[in-house]
């Protein structure tokens, strides 16, 4: 299958978190992933976009941009915002770190790391954050009609 790319941009509304994970999962489905692979990608996208909604734009709305690339069996998802940025990226990658008190566990990035093969976080305070995560699907099994 030829490489393919999808670009999405939407405001950081909580209602759009489900839209984002569903849209990315639908796009990735053309590679015929297993259900656990698709669930992991949905989980990772949900966490990344939730981070934008809750942390990047805590008191306002801003744009969220998602680029999804399919390269062979490799899925690459970039989630980008222009929000407040993260002062210490390493600290927020630690399990259980959160700046919120409202029943948030602070495990969003840890869950992404568990669900994807690789994650890269780049952030500048006042400029925004860019998360790139990738996952290689295990088998090439073709599309619909092929087992």
């Amino acid at each position: 299958m030829a490489d393919n790319t999808m670009y999405l941009e939407f405001p950081s509304k909580v209602e759009n978190v489900a839209f984002a994970r569903t849209a990315v999962a639908a796009f990735v489905s053309q590679l015929d992933p297993t259900m656990p692979e698709l669930a992991d990608i949905s989980t990772a996208v949900s966490e990344a976009v939730t981070n934008v909604v809750v942390h990047a734009y805590p008191d306002t709305e801003g744009p969220v941009a998602i680029t999804t690339k399919l390269m062979g069996q490799q899925v690459l998802v970039e989630v980008k915002d222009n929000g407040c940025g993260i002062e210490d990226v390493d600290s927020v990658r630690r399990f259980g770190t959160t700046t919120c008190s409202q029943e948030r566990m602070g495990i969003g990035l840890s869950l992404i790391e568990s669900c994807m093969d690789h994650i890269d976080v780049q952030s500048q305070v006042g400029q925004g954050t860019r998360i790139v995560m990738s996952k290689r699907l295990e088998q090439q099994r073709g599309g619909f009609g092929n087992d």
């Binding site: 489900a18 949905s42 989980t43 949900s46 966490e47 939730t50 029943e103 566990m105 969003g108």
Partner: peptide, 11 residues
């Protein structure tokens, strides 16, 4: 479906 928001709710 459940993500860390749901986990926070359970905890």
């Amino acid at each position: 479906f459940m993500d860390s928001s749901g986990l926070g709710f359970l905890l």
